[in-house]
Computed example of a mutant assay.
Amino acid sequence: MSSSFERYQKRRLISSYFSVVLSIALVLFLLGILGLLVLNAKKVADLFKEQVTVTIYLKDNAKEIEVKQLEKSLALADYVKSTVYISKEQAAESMKAENGEDFMAFLGFNPLQNNIDVNLKADFVTADKLEELAETALEKGFVEEVRYDKDLVTLMNSRVKKISFWVLLLSAIFTLIAVLLINSSIRLSVYAKRFTIKTMQMVGATKRFIRRPFVWKSIKLGVLGAVIALLGLGFIVFYVDQAFPELNLRQSPVLIGGLFLIIFFLGIIITWISTHFATQRFLNLNTDQLY
């Protein structure tokens, strides 16, 4: 009978530890995902901004040397990421490949124009900078037209600011939720041993002596939960880096390593503080209040 009860208690204890480790791991994993999002929010926004293309259309009588000088001056500008010269023949071939038919055979001539596609660095993708670039290009006599999606740029910049605000707000809220969830799991674990705590106190054990094994046990559970969470995060980083190489996640080892260290120490600190206050609560209760 006693052996059966001991086995039951042992299974119950293991189940309690498992639930604590699982809750810590899940919460820290989700917190890490949010941390990755915060760290890479600007990188993702910059990636989208740098996809905005300014197309400078050239007149048919533009001289080759003038075009090359314009392209070189743009390429050397500190606000330009890349420039690509596309001849009317290349543009025609591209349209033919996309549409699957030769429109020049129908028209009898090539209506397209030579152009230079310009992509700016993310920090310079603003309505004012694009307008300045367009005006500067149009001062050249051989430039026919400059096109870019002005409304898209304005909308993108507005959305990036709003998204950044909400990501930071969600990070703060989720961090608070993470602390509360882990604290709740730890308190339930300590609650299951409330009678043991009171018995030790009644035979003269000091509060520090009683609290120490509970704190160390919770720290070990916190470390285990954090390691599981970090393994999951490592897999996510690897997968995202393979699926979206342009983000260059593994080329930011300091940031990623810093995030991993923060998650690891959060697992330790939260479990330590939660266990300290949970045991303190039961130490301050009298015997009747335990029931």
Rank of each mutant, 00 (worst) to 15 (best):
L76E: 15
L76T: 12
L76M: 10
L76Y: 14
L76H: 07
A77K: 07
D78F: 06
Y79M: 10
Y79G: 04
Y79E: 15
V80T: 04
V80D: 07
K81I: 01
K81P: 01
K81A: 13
S82D: 14
S82V: 05
T83F: 07
V84H: 03
V84P: 00
Y85I: 01
Y85Q: 01
S87C: 02
K88W: 04
K88I: 01
K88A: 09
E89M: 08
E89W: 03
E89A: 14
Q90N: 07
Q90D: 15
A91D: 10
A92Q: 08
A92P: 01
A92F: 09
S94M: 08
S94N: 11
M95K: 04
M95T: 00
K96L: 12
A97C: 00
E98F: 10
E98W: 00
N99M: 15
D102A: 04
F103W: 12
M104L: 14
M104G: 00
A105D: 14
A105S: 14
F106I: 13
L107E: 05
L107I: 02
G108E: 09
G108H: 06
F109Y: 15
F109W: 08
N110L: 08
L112K: 08
L112C: 08
L112P: 07
N114F: 03
N114H: 09
N114E: 05
N115H: 07
N115F: 00
N115P: 00
N115S: 15
I116T: 04
I116W: 11
I116R: 09
D117G: 08
D117E: 15
D117H: 10
D117F: 01
V118W: 10
V118I: 12
V118S: 11
N119K: 14
L120Q: 09
L120I: 02
K121P: 03
K121M: 12
K121C: 03
K121D: 09
A122F: 06
D123R: 13
D123S: 13
D123N: 09
D123T: 03
F124L: 07
F124G: 05
V125H: 04
V125S: 10
T126D: 11
T126E: 13
A127N: 11
A127Q: 11
D128S: 11
L130A: 10
L130D: 12
L130Y: 11
L130C: 06
E131R: 05
E132A: 14
L133A: 09
L133Y: 04
A134R: 06
T136S: 12
A137F: 02
L138E: 12
E139S: 05
E139F: 02
K140M: 06
K140I: 00
G141W: 03
G141V: 01
G141A: 11
F142M: 03
F142R: 05
V143D: 07
V143M: 03
V143W: 07
V143I: 06
E144V: 00
E144A: 09
E145I: 02
V146M: 11
V146I: 11
R147Y: 12
Y148F: 15
Y148C: 06
D151I: 04
D151Y: 02
L152I: 07
L152H: 06
L152W: 15
V153D: 11
T154Q: 15
T154R: 13
L155K: 15
L155G: 06
L155N: 14
M156F: 09
M156N: 05
N157R: 04
N157C: 04
S158K: 11
R159V: 03
R159S: 13
R159E: 14
R159D: 15
R159Q: 14
V160T: 09
K161S: 14
K161T: 08
K162S: 14
I163P: 03
